[in-house]
Design a protein around this nucleic acid. Structure first.
Lengths: 206, 206
DNA sequence: GCTAACCTATCTGTTGGTAGATAAAGTGGC
DNA sequence: GCCACTTTATCTACCAACAGATAGGTTAGC
């Protein structure tokens, strides 16, 4: 249990605060109280609030990118989709949503530099999903009516929106529907348990 | 061109402010300046900011519900889907998203009364979409791998998220992907123009 | 003794909200 | 029809709390 530096604590609590209340929904005072320092100490690390937003977005995106990089491309699309969804499931918190999903709605209050990282975050997920879907189709998964890259956008959007509505409705129903959609798109046979039970490769149906 | 009452102007500008910057992103002062009154006049109509949020959410939802009620249930699913999407298309603004989509991300800062209206808004859309998809399937549209009500949730979530990312990316790409998904789900033949060209009924494919 | 990592103290502007004045418009009694 | 009263819709003038930000001091480790 390594002691976290103040800077790390500030960023971690910023993640949580943005995920809960958004960038406009917390103050340096809130953050200072959580970490147990004075607001001036936050200014020492992040001179202005936009600097904090940018650094938080960068680190959050890097953290997720690192997690996603552990999904072995040699696995079958179904296995990769299940690993991918398990990563999300950990974020299915009754009072938090995805930080980048939240910041994306606050675009108009954030500087261009943050926009750029947010776009990277979106593209990172969409590329991964597109790859899974394309491979599944090549291996004989049932055809979907729209191109793989568009389906990837739809599914990623539905997963993001699913987190938001899971909190509103206090039920993961909508997120789970999006997860099912992804599993179907990579050819997972219907009815199988949604949890991460690894399947033998080549599960595509005709 | 009937003169709008101050109260109506306050609500209209509140719509725009929330859609742009969110509930936490504007002040009574911003709103007062837009309408050309003093902040105390806003307090006369809406004693506290939560009252304003609640009334705005109610009116916004009622307005959309009224628009949706004009979609004739006697029309084919494809025609209804196209009318539905045209309503959304009018909201595809480069700096505004759906007000309820925005407020849903700010759940944690809003009172229960607002949550209830937001849920109604979601359910309103989902019910309409479920109806279209179910009817299309009954009429022979190609089967989708998940139940109609879940597909409706996915599509609605993707449309909402599509507005958010359309603003971030300055491109409607992601929203259009969700729209295509809906048209495919109601059996519209691929390749046809997406704009509101009315089609003869019974366009379902086998 | 220099520097990193805090602190205290303070600043200016903004926030949502309140109190009370005012002017105009309606309402009712006679 | 006129006067007294009430309601509506606005204003001016405040307030305490909070916002992000700054200046400059203290302390501890290298």
């Amino acid at each position: 249990m390594k002691a976290q530096s103040v800077r790390e604590q500030l960023l971690d609590h910023t993640f949580a605060l943005i995920r809960r209340r958004g960038f406009n929904g917390f103050s340096y005072r809130d953050l200072a109280d959580l970490v147990g320092v004075k607001t001036s100490s936050i200014h020492y690390y992040f001179p202005c609030k936009e600097d904090l937003a940018l650094e938080a977005t960068k680190q959050y995106t890097a953290k997720i990118a690192e997690e996603l990089s552990h999904i072995d491309p040699a696995l079958s699309p179904v296995e990769r989709a299940e690993l991918y969804l398990n990563g999300w499931r950990r974020k299915l918190d009754p009072d938090q949503i995805c930080m980048c999903g939240m910041l994306a709605t606050e675009t108009e209050c954030l500087p261009e530099a943050v926009h750029a990282v947010l776009k990277d975050f979106f593209l990172l997920h969409e590329r991964l999903l597109t790859g899974m879907i394309e491979q599944a189709r090549a291996e004989g998964a049932p055809a979907q009516p729209i191109p793989a890259s568009e389906l990837a956008m739809v599914i990623f959007g539905a997963l993001q929106s699913g987190l938001i509505s899971a909190r509103l409705f206090r039920s993961p129903e909508r997120w789970e529907a999006a997860a099912q959609m992804l599993l179907a798109a990579v050819g997972k046979p219907a009815g199988a348990s949604a949890s991460a039970a690894p399947l033998p490769a080549e599960a595509a149906a005709g």
